[in-house]
């Protein structure tokens, strides 16, 4: 009787904890590769930079091919894909500096711009830019017309002066 109790105690105090530990270890070992196939996600708001490509008439470059190049490795695209239906592409910069965003439409339209993602030592990035005010929208064609007019006016004046010169 005493011997059986001693055997039972031995089972309870020595073997069971070891079996439990073994089962736990096995569970961890099995769980580790299983976890490796699990896809997790993280939401970080306000970390991405979004760029929108659109024509002068407001039409978006929808579903256009795009490439984003990091300043750390300008030769290999950091990101490749397509713009969304509104012409937007977003990326999360992991190094500061000027990131190159290239958006290429099938018909040859597109853009190739440098986007400031903040300076070294955590300096803040430049504020959003690229949008156009309604005044600028009207003034730019006028400025272009003025330049063309000035070029031809200068030529005409130069020839008139030469003609009237003694």
């Amino acid at each position: 009787m005493t011997g059986r109790r001693r055997f039972g105690n031995t089972l309870g105090h020595i073997v069971l904890p070891r079996l439990t530990a073994l089962a736990a270890a096995a569970a961890v070992l099995v769980a580790a590769p299983a976890a490796a196939h699990e896809t997790l996600h993280e939401v970080a708001r306000g970390k991405a930079i979004a760029v929108r490509a659109y024509h002068a008439d407001g039409e978006a470059l929808a579903h256009a091919a795009c490439e984003v190049y990091s300043p750390a490795d300008p030769g290999v695209p950091h990101q490749q894909g397509r713009t969304d239906r509104n012409g937007w592409v977003a990326f999360v910069p992991d190094v500061p500096g000027t990131w190159r965003v290239k958006i290429i439409d099938e018909d040859g339209h597109g853009l190739d711009v440098g986007i400031d993602a903040g300076g070294p030592a955590g300096a803040p990035a430049a504020p959003a830019a690229g949008g156009m005010s309604s005044a600028a929208f009207v003034l730019r064609p006028l400025a272009g017309l003025a330049v063309i007019g000035a070029v031809f006016a200068a030529l005409i004046l130069a020839y008139r002066r030469k003609r009237t010169a003694p």
């Binding site: 063309i148 007019g149 070029v151 031809f152 006016a153 030529l155 005409i156 020839y159 008139r160 003609r163």
Partner: peptide
């Protein structure tokens, strides 16, 4: 071409 320049411009 001075005479044509206004039209060309």
């Amino acid at each position: 071409a001075a005479e044509s320049l206004p039209v060309i411009g």
